[in-house]
Every structure is written in structure tokens, then in C-alpha cells.
Design a protein around this nucleic acid. Structure first.
Length: 870
RNA sequence: GCCGGUGUGGCGGAACUGGUAGACGCGCCGGAUUCAAAAUCCGGUUCUGGCAACAGAGUGUGGGUUCGAUUCCCUCCACCGGCACCA
């Protein structure tokens, strides 16, 4: 074996072996249990970033570990290839999105291969290929047939200068990113998927996903947002007809405290009132300004204007004024709310601001009145007052009574309300999957017949920033009606890219099937046993995938309804941000690689740009991004240190779910570890060679081991237990690596060249190489052969600790006096409580703290500690 | 604003079920090796006092439960992710 560790040579050798063996191509024919390991597929943005490297290394470690544990492991890879950045690149460079995307894929694939991931490349596909997205279209048509897909109007961000729809990301401080124009809300027709039909099951089934992080399940549950309440109508007369203003409330017990109703600006009642009220019309216009983003709406100043209309209180018969409120969302419930200022903070502020009456109807902890300022107690549940028949009832009784009365009058009833909204999938954009519909002047919206699928997206177009080029491409939109044959217009909207990513995991089972979306192979591989991706996907992508999988199950396409059994949400990769304000007031960002950093006397970080020696400001650490110029190119690192060092650093730096702070020193440290590992094996192998003139490792004879040899052997086998649990059960890798490092430190101090000593050392080294194989597979592959093994390490069985090696005669127990550590005792592992107690009280360090005091209590925790209370 | 999370030495982190706070690594300091450097090896490294033994303090803030709290509960602060058209 080579004396010096040469990562480039080692990695080329290992990768060549894996490629020639087709080592990671798997099939369903196996007597091993299946394990489907999947990382969220990347958007081909240009180059791999460190977030990808982290994600795929975690997946690869699990993949290789499960394989060594005897599973038939599938780990595929593909490309989430439709999306906005390709259009932005087209606008900037004049290159068609298709070319840009395919070029990026080719480059990034090379990067992935250089990192040695155990991927089955024979299943690769990109979502922008017609062979894939035709099944999006096919599914959409099935959903249309079943009423799961439907059409309604929705709100979008509109740039009035470019005359184009903007993504939320393209709205910056309420203005269009290119034009700087104030963004407006606009209502346009769109297609929706009825995810709300699945809301109850999507919520309930969260309990059956123990392999998901608690926080993700909580976030999804809150997002779905089940609330029980009452939906009720406030009657009013409009142009001689009886109408109802419907609202939903979770506080029907406060119904007698209603002093106004508020409707959204888009509500029909507001539109009607505005027709004869110019001031109101102007206010509604004002409400339409600004973006459609919820975060923006939530921090807006709450404003309102009376419509001049009133509705009748359904129980008291009182006249209730109707207001338009900019904080009422048309998308939530019926787009109207009942205002109970005394017991709702938002209504309270609104009433104070506009001088509306505040009528307390609940007795709260501070009394019956609700003087300003607002107190949290006002919003609490309590006993009804000033509410006629409801007086004296508690929350539950009052809600029941109100619901019963409303029902009797046919004005309302109890209802379960969901926060979740249907999924709008229409995008007024080019680089996406065409929605397979044809608009016929006679027949209306006509689905494209199955035999005409796929509706192929023309790949040569280049967007220019002023809307969707498909709307200007006759060859695409001109068509004939499949029903009547008349000239018709093809739908030019494309699908949300979340559609593409909602079922790709099932397609990986059978990417070559041109006749069906999925086949029996999906039943073999699904569900995904381990899914890994960024925490930023905790809600949307994962919820849409759960929904889509349910629809596929209902159509008989899949047998499972939950796509991902176990989920690992990895944290972000951060790096320092350095900037300098230019004379024109613009901030310029410098890559940390170009900055020299020192600490001044106070320990504050001072950066200097290497190029000009002038200072730059440190802005803290944030996710690596182009805009902050703080990315690190994995390709350069692999070249400099080798893939194994990069992988090791990524896994060692932070636990997978936490953010990872980049540091150059850390990679250096990982490289140092690799050299140390290499040297350790090299020394063992050369030492064991007969020609070396040293005592070779003999056959390990447990009975012949000295106590120190036994200690080292115990440490090695305890490490196996630790590492197996950390990778297999806890899915934390930093502590697994730390445990191996500790074992290596132990071996470094173990100076024993006897035959048994060398045998103990060899056993430990072989265990180390096996345990590190999932993390640094190239080096371990080569080292395994160097240690004299013929088999490929990736298929070698994962080591199991020897129980005899783990056995321990004496244990150390710590002794606390009044909660403070005062001594340590070494005692037989099978000592009785009485013996432990006696030994603890007799300990020198302990006795001086209990002298002359009465021992009140002695608590013994077996094998760990004694706590004495005096 | 709402939902979820995080906060521990100079730094990243460890402590898995309420039981030894700081494993492991980085950085730094000292030493060995070397003509020298790189590389490598050995030792030290939470803070305060002390030559030391040792003592005290200490896990964002303030409080609580407990023999015992980084861990559980409440309050506040700071930061991060998401908020439905970035993916």
C-alpha cells in the first residue's frame, strides 16, 4: 500500500470500481429487505452548493450503512428542472431555459459523481422531459374528471408596467423587481386542486408518522388548522332579495357582543356598496394595492371604512353596521368576520380606532368591564353576561345553545373550519408543464384527450420579462377543439413546479415505463423509507406530496397513502458575509475566500480584502447565496482536499438537523484526520508483514489478554455500539465520528507490540475502517483491501460488538453531597445498594462534607451515582 | 403579525430517559523533530482566586418544580426557517 494518502488516486480507484461493477444499480429481485433512501432532488441552478453536498452526504451515509446492514437499498437521483430561475437566466443572458437547464444538469451531475455518492444513475430523469411531465398532465385530467381539479379566480401580484404576474420572490418592498412599480393585487381565473377534501386525513395521519420530526408534524397540523366553531348568517336585504352575510367564528359564545361586521375588500357586499359610494370605492382600490403575500398583509396597519350597509343580528335582531376591513382575508373562510371588540384583540383595536361600541359579554379574570388598554384576559373563555338567555353559561354550553338557536332559525350551525386552502397550480409562466386544456368558444374548457398527451412545451423560446412567451407563440396556442373541431386556443398557463416534485419519488421506481405513470415496481419500493431534505420544505412540498400520493392511492396507482416513512430535515449551511458600502450607496459583497480575517484586541472580527488591503465589514453568518456572494464551491474543495475530507467535515461539523457554519479550518482538520487514518492502517499493515522483522499480529486469544489489552478491546467494541446507534437509530453523525476519533486516540496511546497487542490493535483498526465506510467510502474501500480483504467493503456486513469484550468488572460511581460532586468510587459492577452506600459514605472526598451533619437521605442510581442529602 | 425552532468555553459542538457540564474537533499556548519550513508527534487550554491541593461561579434573561435542571414548567430577550407564485 501507498505510504502517503493521495485522495485523488484513492477516489479515482474506488469510483472506477463502483462504476465497473454497476455497484449501485438495484432491482426488485432481491432476497434482502428493501430500503428506499431518497434526498430531495436538486433544482439545477448551475453548480452544486454546500447545502446539496450536505444533503446528499447524509443520504449517502444512511444508504451505505443500510446496505452494510443487509438491505437492498435504492438511492436514485434526478432533477427538479422546471422553474423560475431558468427564466431569469434567459432574461439575463438570452439563452433559452431548456439549454441553460440541460447544461446545468450535465455540470452538476459531474459534481455529484466526483463526491462518490452511491446513486443508481440508471434511473435518472428530469421533470422537464415530456416522458415525465406527460404524467402530470394525465393525472391532472383524472383529477378534473373527479372534481379534484377545478377552476376559480385567485389573487396574484400584478406589475402594472411590465403587465405581468409576479412571483412573491419578485416583489421587493411592495414593488416589482424589474420595474420598481408598486405592485397590485389582481383576480384571474386559475386551476385549483381540492387538497381541502383531504384535510381531515392529512391531519389525522400525522399521528401515524412517528418517523417524522415532531416540529414538522406540528407545523403541518397548524398549517392544516382544524378549528371547531359556528358558521352563521347575518340576514340583509339587497335589491329586494333576502341575503345572508356568512361568517365563521370559534367564539359563538360572544355572539351577543357583536357590534359590527367586517368584510374583505373583494367581498361582493363591498363591491355592491362601492358602486354608489366613491369614497368606499377609493378605499377598496387602496386595499388592492400592495402584494398578495400573507406576511405583508399581517403587518399592515389595520384600516377600515363603513359601507353604509347594515345586516341583522341573527339572534337579537339588532342592526349591525358592515365595514370593509383591510385585515379581512377573502381567502380565509367566507371573507367576512363578526366583530366582537370586547373579546377579540384585533376587533378591539379596530373599534377603538373607529369609535365603534364595545360590549362586554364574558366575565373575565379582571371583572366584567374591558377598559383600555387591551388585556389578554379579555380574550379568555368565561361565563356569559349581558347575553339574555346565555347568561351564566360557560363556553361550551353557550356555543351549543347558540348553534341550536341558529339552526332552528336556519341561520347557522356548528361547523369544522380548516385553515388549509385549495392548491392553486396555474402559473402564467413559460418554463413549466403545460396544463392540458383547450379553450373552445363553443364548448368551453375542453380537456386534451389522453391520446394527445403529452402537450409538449416548445423548448426554443426565450422569455424577455414581459410575460409568458407561450401567449405569443401561435404554433403552440392555436389548435382545434377536440370536441367540435372548431378553431380553439390552447391553455398557456403552466403548472406550479410543486406538482413535479409531488410524485417524482414514485417515478424513480419505474422511470422507463412509457405506458403508465407507475407500475408494480412502485409497490415494491414505496414508501420512501428515509427522506432527507431542507427544513424549509417542512410544509408545502411535504404536504403536497402527501396529498398527491393519496390521490394516486385513490386512483389505484399506489398502495400507500404516506410517501415518506421517515423524514430527516437537515439544517442550512451558513457562511460569513463581508461587505463594503460603495460611494454610490450600494453594498458590495465579497466572498470570504477573498477576505483575510484577524481578531483585534477586543476579540472583534476585522476583515481585510486581500486584493486592496482595505477593511470590509462582517455582517454575520447567513445561508450561502449568490446575492451575498458567500458561497463555497464544492468542486474546488474536492480538488484540493478530496471528496472524503469534504464529506467527513460536513458530517462532523454539526448534527444534521442544525445549521452548519462553514469554516476552512474545519476542512483542513478533516483532511488531517484522513491522513492520520491512512497512516494508522499503513503502520499496522507494514508492521504485520513478516519481512518487517517485528512481531506480527497473532490470532486474537481472549483468554490471554492483559487487563490493558482488554480495556482497549472493550473501547473498540463499545465504539461499535455507539456508532451503530448514532448512525442507525439517532441519525447523528458528528458524535459517531467523535467516538471513532476517541478510539483512535486510545489506540495511539496503546503502545504494545506483543502478538496479542498487535492483534487487539488490528481488530480495532478493522472495525474503524468498517465504521467509517459510509462516511468516507473511497479511502475505506482502499484501506480494506490494504488490510488484506478481498471483498468490497460496501457489501461487507456491518460489525456487531462482541458481548464478551464489553463486559466490565468494576464501575466508577460519582458521589454527590447536596447536589455537588464530591467524590468518585470504584466498585464491583454487581455491588448491592448497601455496599454502594457504605463505600460512598466512607469515601475520603465525601466524608469531610458530611462530617458532623445528619445524613437525611441517600439516593442511589445504579451504575451511575450516589446522591447524599445532609 | 402568525406557526415552528435555536441559544452551552475564543469557535463548531457533546451530555440519547432529570443524574459527573464542556466528549470530539477547530483555534490558541508550550514542547519535540528539522539547517529551516511544511507535515507529524506530545502536553496544556470554561472563568475567578490560589504555587498547589482545592474552593467558588457557570449552559441567552428572570423566576419555579426537584436531593439533583443544559434537560421539565412560566416570563422576557436575541437569532433562524416558513407564511401558500423561490425551490
Amino acid at each position: 500500500m501507498q505510504e502517503r494518502y493521495d485522495p485523488a488516486a484513492v477516489e479515482a480507484q474506488a469510483q472506477a470500481f463502483w462504476t465497473s461493477e454497476r455497484a449501485f444499480s438495484v432491482s426488485e429481485e432481491s432476497d434482502r429487505p428493501k430500503f428506499y433512501s431518497l434526498c430531495m432532488f436538486p433544482y439545477p441552478s448551475g453548480r452544486l452548493h454546500m447545502g446539496h453536498v450536505r444533503n446528499y452526504t447524509i443520504g449517502d451515509v444512511i444508504t451505505r450503512f443500510m446496505r452494510m446492514q443487509g438491505h437492498n437499498v435504492l438511492q436514485p437521483m434526478g432533477w427538479d428542472a422546471f422553474g423560475l430561475p431558468a427564466e431569469n437566466a434567459a432574461i439575463a443572458n438570452g439563452v433559452p431555459p431548456a439549454k441553460w437547464t440541460y447544461d446545468n444538469i450535465a455540470y452538476m451531475k459531474g459534481q455529484l459523481q466526483s463526491l462518490g455518492f452511491a446513486l443508481d444513475w440508471e434511473r435518472e430523469f428530469a421533470t422537464c422531459q415530456p416522458a415525465y411531465y406527460r404524467w402530470n398532465q394525465w393525472m391532472f385530467l383524472r383529477m378534473l374528471e373527479r372534481g379534484i381539479a377545478y377552476k376559480k379566480t385567485g389573487t396574484v401580484n400584478w406589475d402594472p408596467i411590465d403587465q405581468t404576474v409576479l412571483a412573491n420572490e419578485q416583489v421587493i418592498d411592495g414593488r416589482g423587481w424589474r420595474t420598481g412599480a408598486l405592485v397590485e393585487k389582481r383576480e384571474i381565473p386559475m386551476y385549483y386542486l381540492r387538497i381541502t377534501d383531504y384535510a381531515p386525513d392529512l391531519l389525522q395521519s400525522l399521528d401515524q408518522l412517528p418517523g417524522w420530526p415532531e416540529r414538522v408534524r406540528t407545523m403541518q397540523a397548524n398549517w392544516i388548522g382544524r378549528s371547531e366553531g359556528v358558521r352563521l348568517g347575518f340576514p340583509y336585504e339587497l335589491q329586494g332579495e333576502q341575503q345572508l352575510l356568512n361568517v365563521f367564528t370559534t367564539r359563538a359564545d360572544t355572539i351577543m357582543g357583536v357590534t359590527f361586521c367586517a368584510v374583505a375588500a373583494e367581498h361582493p357586499l363591498a363591491t355592491f356598496a362601492a358602486a354608489s359610494n366613491p369614497q368606499l370605492a377609493a378605499f377598496i382600490e387602496e386595499c388592492k394595492r400592495g402584494s398578495a403575500m400573507e406576511a405583508d398583509l399581517a403587518v399592515m396597519e389595520k384600516k377600515g371604512l363603513a359601507t353604509g350597509l347594515s345586516v341583522t343580528h341573527p339572534l337579537s335582531g339588532e342592526q349591525i353596521p358592515v365595514w370593509v376591513g383591510n385585515y379581512v382575508l377573502m381567502t380565509y373562510g367566507d371573507g367576512a368576520v363578526m366583530g366582537v371588540p370586547a373579546h377579540d384583540e384585533r376587533d378591539y383595536e379596530f373599534a377603538l380606532k373607529y369609535g365603534l361600541p364595545i360590549k362586554p359579554v364574558i366575565r373575565h379574570a379582571k371583572g366584567d368591564e374591558v377598559p383600555a388598554p387591551w388585556q389578554p384576559e379579555y380574550g379568555a373563555h368565561g361565563v356569559c353576561i349581558n347575553s339574555g338567555q346565555l347568561d351564566g353559561m360557560d363556553y361550551q354550553q353557550a356555543v351549543e345553545a347558540v348553534a341550536a338557536q341558529l339552526k332552528a332559525r336556519n341561520l347557522g350551525d356548528k361547523q369544522v373550519h380548516w385553515r388549509l386552502r385549495d392548491w392553486g397550480i396555474s402559473r402564467q409562466r413559460y418554463w413549466g408543464c403545460p396544463i392540458p386544456l383547450i379553450h373552445c368558444p363553443q364548448c368551453g374548457d375542453v380537456p386534451v384527450p389522453d391520446q394527445d398527451l403529452p402537450v409538449v412545451l416548445p423548448e426554443g423560446l426565450t422569455p424577455d420579462g414581459s410575460g409568458n412567451p407561450l401567449t405569443k407563440t401561435q404554433a403552440f396556442y392555436e389548435c382545434t377543439c377536440p370536441k367540435c373541431g372548431a378553431a380553439a386556443r390552447r391553455e398557456t398557463d403552466t403548472m406550479d413546479t410543486f406538482v413535479d416534485s409531488s410524485w417524482y419519488f414514485a417515478r424513480f421506481a419505474c422511470p422507463d415505463n412509457d405506458d403508465a405513470m407507475v407500475d408494480a415496481r412502485a409497490d415494491y419500493w414505496m414508501p420512501v423509507d428515509q427522506y432527507i431534505g431542507g427544513i424549509e420544505h417542512a410544509i408545502l412540498h411535504l404536504l403536497y406530496s402527501r396529498f398527491w400520493t393519496r390521490v394516486m392511492r385513490d386512483l389505484g396507482l399506489l398502495t400507500v397513502k404516506e410517501p415518506f416513512s421517515n423524514l430527516l430535515t437537515q439544517g442550512m449551511v451558513l457562511n460569513d458575509i463581508y461587505s463594503r458600502k460603495g460611494s454610490d450607496g450600494r453594498t458590495q459583497y465579497f466572498n470570504p475566500a477573498e477576505v483575510e480575517v484577524q481578531l483585534d484586541a477586543k476579540g472583534t472580527r476585522v476583515g481585510k480584502l486581500v486584493a486592496d488591503g482595505r477593511p470590509v465589514e462582517w455582517e454575520g453568518m447567513r445561508t450561502m447565496s449568490k446575492s451575498k456572494n458567500n458561497g463555497v464551491d464544492p468542486a474546488m474543495l474536492v480538488e484540493q482536499y478530496g471528496a472524503d475530507s469534504v464529506r467527513l467535515f460536513m458530517m462532523f461539523k454539526s448534527p444534521p438537523e442544525d445549521t452548519l457554519e462553514w469554516s476552512d479550518d474545519g476542512v483542513e482538520g478533516a483532511a488531517r484526520f484522513m491522513r492520520r487514518l491512512w497512516r494508522m492502517v499503513h503502520e499496522q499493515v507494514t508492521g504485520d508483514a513478516p519481512a518487517a522483522g517485528r512481531v506480527a499480529a497473532g490470532a486474537l486469544d481472549q483468554a490471554a489478554l492483559s487487563s490493558q489489552q482488554r480495556d482497549v478491546r472493550r473501547a473498540a467494541h463499545a465504539t461499535v455500539v455507539k456508532v451503530t446507534g448514532d448512525i442507525g437509530r439517532r441519525r447523528v453523525f458528528n458524535t459517531a465520528i467523535a467516538a471513532v476519533m476517541e478510539l483512535m486516540n486510545t489506540l495511539a496511546k496503546f503502545d504494545d507490540s506483543s502478538a496479542q497487542g498487535r492483534a487487539v490493535r488490528r481488530e480495532a483498526i478493522e472495525l474503524i475502517v468498517q465504521m467509517l465506510a459510509p462516511i468516507v467510502p473511497h479511502a475505506c474501500h482502499v484501506l480494506w483491501h490494504a488490510l488484506g480483504h478481498d471483498d468490497a467493503l460496501m457489501d461487507h456486513a456491518w460489525p456487531v460488538a462482541d458481548p464478551d469484550a464489553l463486559r466490565q468488572d468494576n464501575v466508577e460511581i460519582v458521589v454527590q453531597v447536596n447536589g455537588k460532586l464530591r467524590g468518585r468510587i470504584s466498585i464491583a459492577a454487581d455491588a448491592s445498594d448497601e455496599q454502594i452506600r457504605a463505600a460512598a459514605l466512607a469515601d475520603d472526598g465525601v466524608s469531610k462534607w458530611i462530617e458532623g451533619k445528619a445524613v437525611r437521605k441517600v439516593i442511589i442510581v445504579k451504575g451511575k451515582l450516589v446522591s447524599i442529602v445532609v
